[in-house]
Structures are given as structure tokens and as C-alpha cells.
Design a protein around this nucleic acid. Structure first.
Length: 274
DNA sequence: CGGACAACCTGGCGGC
DNA sequence: TGCCGCCAGGTTGTCC
């Protein structure tokens, strides 16, 4: 599910409920949801710690506690929200991790496919150390983008999905930003013209910012922490629009597979060339 | 470095 | 209605 805009929306939604709260108890029912340390050590360490801050890095949700970082990755179907402890557990049968907080609320991590992970560490670099730059920060300049492209030759779409190349872009926003830049997803990264590189640098940021402004895309599992859907899926240009006309030229949007991922593009606006 | 593919899981959907 | 195969927004590891 969630890419940078969805994770950012989750962080903004839960932060006010968490900052200042103290952890009273931890519960889980699926060991593999706890990435590290062991569930027993996790529980022993986290109880008593207070939330100092909640932020995002790439697609990771990072909660700064007194002595540790509580890190959560939603993967495909994860949801994270805070509700009163008395709220019916059966309302969401996919909750696999809960923290009881000192104001009578609970932080709940729901994950239908069980791909998501929670981590507790005092060294955040072990998790975020290899990530590429944050695409929406000012430091992600055109120069930085060009430098990172230098020496790379693989197809541009899978390169955008590589979290060590640039952090936070997933399948939706890769397709959307490539369409906005008029670049075919199978183009070799070293075949892009200077103009195309400049355009893509801008559209990656624009696509992600649009996703944040619309509070994420909810065509399937993703929901905001308040349970409501985001609106981004109403504004997709090509993603999941195969067989429908391109808004720019009227040509039918196509769906193909690129690096084993479903990929949507307009063959007229995004030519592969010869 | 690049690429293919399997794994990790469950649920929804189309086809028969 | 039932069963089967395929698909799904992510990441990691293996093998060539």
C-alpha cells in the first residue's frame, strides 16, 4: 500500500495523539511482525518509555522514544492508528501489534498480509543508513539527482523504485511521475536527455507532493489514521487506468510488466523510441 | 552493476 | 456456488 505520501499522512495523523504519551504495555499475536529485538526484549524495553516525536524517513515511521526508536514499516497492507482502548478489537481482525498508552488509548498496527514490521533500536542508522535522499527535501537538488544517475544504466522505473537511489517512491508514484515527464518506464537511465532528467526531477517531487496534498491513495487497503480514505486515487493520470484515455492525448493507457511490476503508461506521450 | 525470481502472507477477482 | 489461478501499493535475498 503505502508510499511516501501515504506514510507522511499517517505520521501527520498519529503524531498529535502520541507525543507525550508513555507506553504501559505491549501486545502482539504474530512473532514475525516483530522484526527485532525478540518480542520479550521488545516488550521489556519499550514499557515505560515516552513518545518524544514522530516523523517519517522514506516509507518508515520513526517514533523517537526516551531511549530507543520505535520504527514501523507498513509494507503492502499495514495500517497504524490510535483509538480508545475500549474500542472493539473485533472491528479490525488484522491487528497484530498494540501498545497500551497512559491516557487510555492504544496504538494499533493492523496488517492483513503480515508483511509489515516493527523495530526497536537505539541506532536508527541500522535501518535508515542505506536509504537514498528524501525527494521532497531541498537538498534533493537537480545536481544531486544528476550525480546519482551518473554511471547507472538500468531501466528508469526500477531505478526510481530502488530505495537506495531515492527514498520513498513506490509503484504508484513512479508511474505517475514518469508519465508527467513523458518518459517511457523502460527507458535506460543513461539514455535520458538533460531536459528529461530535469523534467523527471521535477515530476517525482510534484507527484509525491500531490499525493500528500490529497492525503494518499485509497483504491484498496490504505486508510488514513482516522479511518477515512485519501483522495489521491481520484487524480491518477495513468495508474490503474489501463484501457482508459490519456488525459493529455486521448490514447488508451496501457499496462505492461516492467521488472515484475505492473506498469501503467501512455504509449503516445511516453514513447520508447527506436 | 543489472536482471530474473522466489519468499514473506491474505484476500479479491475473473474464468470456468 | 465452488475451485483455481492470478493479481496486489514493498523489500530482501539468491543466483546467473
Amino acid at each position: 500500500m503505502p508510499e511516501l505520501p501515504e506514510v507522511e499522512t499517517v505520521v501527520r495523523g498519529i503524531k498529535p495523539s502520541l507525543v507525550g504519551r508513555r507506553v504501559e504495555e505491549m501486545w502482539h499475536d504474530w512473532d514475525k511482525t516483530i522484526h527485532s529485538p525478540t518480542p520479550d526484549e521488545f516488550a521489556a524495553r519499550i514499557v515505560g518509555q515516552r513518545f518524544q516525536n514522530v516523523r517519517r524517513r522514506a516509507k518508515y515511521i520513526i517514533c523517537e522514544l526516551d531511549n530507543d526508536f520505535l520504527v514501523i514499516h507498513l509494507k503492502m497492507t499495514g495500517r497504524l492508528y490510535v483509538v480508545p482502548a475500549e474500542n472493539d478489537y473485533d472491528a479490525d481482525k488484522w491487528v497484530h501489534f498494540r501498545l497500551q498508552l497512559d491516557d487510555g488509548t492504544q496504538l494499533r498496527f493492523s496488517d492483513m498480509r503480515k508483511f509489515g514490521k516493527v523495530y526497536l533500536t537505539n541506532d536508527i542508522k541500522t535501518i535508515t543508513g542505506k536509504l537514498g535522499p528524501e525527494p521532497l527535501e531541498d537538498s534533493f537538488s537537480l545536481d544531486v539527482f544528476e550525480e546519482r544517475l551518473a554511471g547507472r544504466s538500468k531501466m528508469i522505473k526500477p531505478l526510481l523504485l530502488d530505495q537506495t537511489f531515492v527514498a520513498g517512491v513506490g509503484n504508484i508514484y513512479a508511474d505517475e511521475s514518469l508519465h508527467m515527464a513523458g518518459i517511457h518506464p523502460k527507458r535506460r537511465s543513461n539514455s535520458l536527455t538533460d531536459d528529461e532528467v530535469q523534467a523527471l526531477h521535477g515530476t517525482v517531487r510534484a507527484a509525491l507532493q500531490k499525493g500528500i496534498d490529497q492525503e494518499g491513495a485509497s483504491f484498496s487497503w490504505y486508510r488514513k489514521p482516522d479511518g477515512e480514505p485519501g483522495a489521491m486515487h481520484k487524480h491518477f493520470l495513468v495508474f490503474r487506468r489501463e484501457g482508459e484515455p490519456c488525459y493529455n492525448c486521448g490514447t488508451m493507457v496501457e499496462k505492461i510488466r516492467v521488472a515484475q511490476r505492473g506498469t501503467h503508461f501512455c504509449p503516445a506521450c511516453q514513447p520508447l523510441g527506436s
